[in-house]
């Protein structure tokens, strides 16, 4: 049943067995085309497997569905160094921590250090903090002079 497939999918997610996540997500989609959780699991597993082209294909395949995969797409575009395209996509998105991290990384690559620091400040206002974030802020300050 669909419930059994999702239980299997969940186990693979917990084990970070990314190839099996994709496989079982596809099995769900064969029974329930357009299932949002299955599509999100597939796209995230492909991104986490560094299969950026395949992730973009899965996002494209779902483009007619009422599911917003823009933040994933923006990340994939960033990985392909299509920075302005990624930024255009981000402008319309809710500023979740993931989106703010991505935005700051894009600005950094574009050499727009003031905007980069702005994004980091928004993350700190959301009480998002980590050693990695501190390292990136330091890098931006150094690069920004």
């Amino acid at each position: 049943s669909l419930e059994d497939l999702f239980a299997t999918l969940n186990r693979h997610v917990d084990n970070n067995d990314l190839a099996k996540v994709v496989k079982v997500a596809d099995q769900v989609l064969a029974i329930a085309p357009g299932d949002e959780d299955a599509i999100r699991c597939k796209v995230v597993a492909l991104i986490r497997s560094e299969a950026i082209d395949k992730a973009l294909n899965a996002i494209k395949a779902a483009s007619s569905l009422p599911i917003d995969l823009s933040s994933y797409k923006a990340y994939c575009l960033y990985r392909q160094n299509k920075l302005e395209e990624a930024l255009d996509l981000i402008r319309g998105l809710e500023k979740t921590p993931m989106v703010l991290h991505l935005e700051s990384q894009i600005f950094y690559r574009l050499g727009k250090m003031d905007s980069c620091i702005d994004s980091y400040e928004k993350l700190q206002k959301l009480k998002i903090d980590s050693d990695d974030l501190k390292a990136n802020i330091m890098a931006s300050l150094v690069a920004g002079g």
Partner: peptide, 21 residues
């Protein structure tokens, strides 16, 4: 310039499947 860590990657999470099982 220094390499920025890809924190966005680490922030991409699987959806919760709790209510699907």
């Amino acid at each position: 310039s220094p390499i920025v860590l890809d924190i966005a990657y680490n922030s991409i999470e699987f959806p919760s499947l709790e209510n699907r099982m």
